[in-house]
Design a protein around this nucleic acid. Structure first.
Length: 259
DNA sequence: CTGGGGAGGGGGCCC
DNA sequence: CGGGCCCCCTCCCCA
């Protein structure tokens, strides 16, 4: 079944302007989410930042110990390609804790979590953060952890809301009326429904392709970038996806023919 | 083997 | 507190 039939047919609803995404910070911003014009990138508050920023979005694995090491290593941990936490620490202003970045040594002018150090713009945001985020730190104030436990699996959460959200992944309350497939969240169902309707609200500003899913558009935008996000430390090749980089390294191109 | 699209999942934040 | 949305990630499959 050819998947190359991706033609922009019709867009019934909103259509994010990804051309803005493209233009706002230069060609290399192609893969940068619109809300992260470089926000996830080092912002130059330390020397390491320049390893990434000026050149665009090349996640040089050589500076990402969590992602790549020259030693034989298993699959990089889910720290992911963007785990630049080791190389930058300035994300808090932009992502408001959205990312999983570790605490940044910021001035205490903001509301800072005493457990993990993340800072937030307001007390409410901090309060919310403390309910969910800090619970992942097993050592964080165990006495204050409510520990809502999932009865379907072993996961634990610090807030009932987080637990409820998780439980939906077991109960799958959102059912597709067309095919009966069930999903945990309404928006997942909506995304699925697009596979039935053919709706592709996310169009590429560089070509005629359109996508039903924003993440897939984001990945696609990488293909238009001269320099891709993920760079092999061994041969400097860049890849649009971490999986490709991983395949590349596993295949033994460079330094980690371990598996 | 590589590159890329399709689809889906989960955690987190904002309103 | 829940809905909506975001981002990141992964797996599968195909060219």
């Amino acid at each position: 079944m050819p998947r190359s039939f991706l033609v922009k047919k019709y867009f019934t609803s909103k259509k994010p302007n990804y051309s803005e995404l493209e233009s706002q910070s230069g060609p290399l911003s192609a893969g940068v989410p619109e809300r992260y014009p470089l926000a996830e990138l080092p912002t130059g508050e330390n020397g390491l930042s320049t390893a990434c920023c000026p050149a665009g979005l090349v996640w040089d694995v050589s500076i990402l110990p969590g992602l790549y090491t020259p030693e034989p290593v298993s699959i990089p941990s889910p720290t992911g390609p963007l785990d630049l936490s080791s190389s930058h620490s300035s994300s808090s202003e932009e992502d408001e804790g959205r990312s999983s970045d570790p605490p940044s040594p910021e001035p205490a002018e903001r509301h800072q979590c005493p457990n993990c150090g993340k800072s937030y713009g307001g007390p409410a945001a901090l309060s919310r953060h403390r309910l969910s985020c800090c619970g992942k730190d097993e050592a964080a104030a165990p006495a204050t952890r409510p520990a809502f436990r999932c009865k379907h699996c072993t996961k634990e959460y610090n807030s009932l809301g987080a637990l409820k959200m998780h439980i939906r992944s077991h109960t799958l309350p959102c059912v597709c009326a067309t095919c009966g497939k069930a999903f945990s969240r309404p928006w997942l169902l909506r995304g699925h429904i697009r596979t039935h309707t053919g709706e592709r609200p996310f169009s590429c500003p560089h070509c005629s392709r359109a996508f039903a899913d924003r993440s897939n558009l984001r990945a696609h935008l990488q293909t238009h970038s001269e320099v891709k996000k993920y760079q092999c430390a061994g041969c400097s090749r860049t890849f649009s996806r971490m999986s490709l980089l991983h395949k590349h390294t596993v295949a033994g191109c460079c330094s980690s023919p371990s598996s």
